[in-house]
Design a protein around this nucleic acid. Sequence first.
DNA 1: CTGAAAGCGCTTACAG
DNA 2: CTGAAAGCGCTTACAG
Lengths: 350, 350
Amino acid sequence: MPGIDAVAALAGVSTATVSRALSGNGHVSPSTRVRVHDAARELGYVVSSPASSLASGRTKNVGVVVPFISRWFYSSVLEGAGSALLKNGYDLTLYGLTGGGGVDERRSVFEHFLLRKRVDAVLALTIELTTGELQSLLDLKKPIVGIGGPLAGVQTLSIDDVGVALLATEHLLGLGHRCIGMIGGESGFELDFHLPTNRRAGYERALRSAGIEPAPHLFLPADFTIRGGYQAATALLRDPRSRPSALFAASDEMAMGSILAARDLGLSVPGDVSIIGIDGHEHSDFFGLTTVAQFPERQGAHAVEMLMDQLHPGRRDPTPTNIPLPVELIVRTSTAPPSPPPLPPAAPAP
Amino acid sequence: MPGIDAVAALAGVSTATVSRALSGNGHVSPSTRVRVHDAARELGYVVSSPASSLASGRTKNVGVVVPFISRWFYSSVLEGAGSALLKNGYDLTLYGLTGGGGVDERRSVFEHFLLRKRVDAVLALTIELTTGELQSLLDLKKPIVGIGGPLAGVQTLSIDDVGVALLATEHLLGLGHRCIGMIGGESGFELDFHLPTNRRAGYERALRSAGIEPAPHLFLPADFTIRGGYQAATALLRDPRSRPSALFAASDEMAMGSILAARDLGLSVPGDVSIIGIDGHEHSDFFGLTTVAQFPERQGAHAVEMLMDQLHPGRRDPTPTNIPLPVELIVRTSTAPPSPPPLPPAAPAP
DNA sequence: CTGAAAGCGCTTACAG
DNA sequence: CTGAAAGCGCTTACAG
């Protein structure tokens, strides 16, 4: 592993010039730049990150704090963020708050690991932070971007949960459904307590706009898993007398559980019941699930762009503070008009 | 952010002593140690990682190279590895080889990112490396541990694929099945070309030990996804005349796809067909899937322990080179004796 | 555009 | 057990 002096010697310049030529900070004549790059390549020189960081205060590394790693949404965001960081020459250091370590583990992340001067910025994925944790992040005086729930004092990125639920429900209404159930989130949802509320609000608003008063017995909370969706859907669909003709699940995993529940009840999807989810989960295609896709990989990449904008001011037009994240209704085979079709509006019986 | 001198001043010692007391390297009298720790806590001192790394050559960071992030097996291993690293005071820097960047991205990981002196060791997850890539890893002269496929010159950790398949197939044989199909991997499996071969070998060995010659038309390769399993199972189960009474899928996702395929064909599981998988996937419980679980989180934690042993010689008895990873047959409701039950051995017809 | 030199904040032989 | 001092390998004002 040659050092910077070897490169300087070979290129016939000072180490200062090598540093400037390779990093792009400071002016170097074109010809010198070429000589330095050639020398570096020839020697296989790669800058020592600790030395560079110590001298410059920059680490070229971003810390990503996640509540779970092995869940589709998080790992997809990670995938997108990691790839975007790599393109920008940044490493991604992962701080999972999952493990068996529990409270101690979590505290050590905020009180030790993130304070080691190892990251230039922090990306926080949908995670409910205590005020103390939030404060230690802010004390870092480093760019922070959050994905998901609002974080006081932090630039965040999130989909419009009300709008997404509105879109999903309106799709069902547009097909002619009038009796639409919803599988939502528990109110004490661990990750972001606004999400369940907002998605339910969108659902209810869509119904009311269509002149339908939401029926409380058609709403059931679950835990965002396949199993939870299965159980809730079973409860909602079991009784033929109260059975909705369509189900809106606040996540694709719950929607998939609903599809399986419907089948186990002997109901056909979408013949007897239409089902729509939210996510665009990797398995939604296989299940033929109609869904509102939210593209988590792009969210990760997007968050990285925002961080890069803060890390390199002037690099391009600054990102506006609140970018609405794109979502897309993907219609597959789990939704269809109700059957029998609703009666056309008729004059009320005398 | 106070520096080491502030701590030294408050504790009334030299910075050298502070360093020794806090890092545990070198002797410090008990009373001094306490004073230094108190001073550090009072000031909220956290060592600067770049400074420490530059001076010591140690980074307290491990690089993890993964082919995919958002797949159950990988994200689960990551989860386990990340948690174990945190407990040891190490960071986890993630190098995903997935992204759209393709070849360039992949090359930059091996030729740039891993050479920055930012990691003390490398963990490579089930990834088929080119000789060049492997060489750059070995050139780092740092501890490397691989999970999954064998990597020449690297200490690796993997389950006994032959044994696992043997176990799964023997479970079916033990229930009385004689006609057992297998959904395996394509021979050109991108991640580890030994895995499909070994699992098939275990399946065939189990059959032969039971006096059954494996029938080529009962083996179908697929791509380890739910969809792939669904398609393969549909093909294997469609024709009643050649239908096996049990299916062994080389992964749980394929087994889940098989369960769904069986249902769509009007077959009951396990009534008409028994299905077993390999993995212990988070969803296997929901599907009632009998499986051979391989505990990826523990694999990640285990790999970390091996790295720590190499990083801190003498910290405890060295790990033997080849630890068989534990697997466990978990019997759920997707497997049962065939019906109608096989006839008891009878004298051959005259 | 380029170089000499100070300095980033630690760790660790070396000496006592 | 402890301290003074060199040194880790860069970056960057400062001066030219």
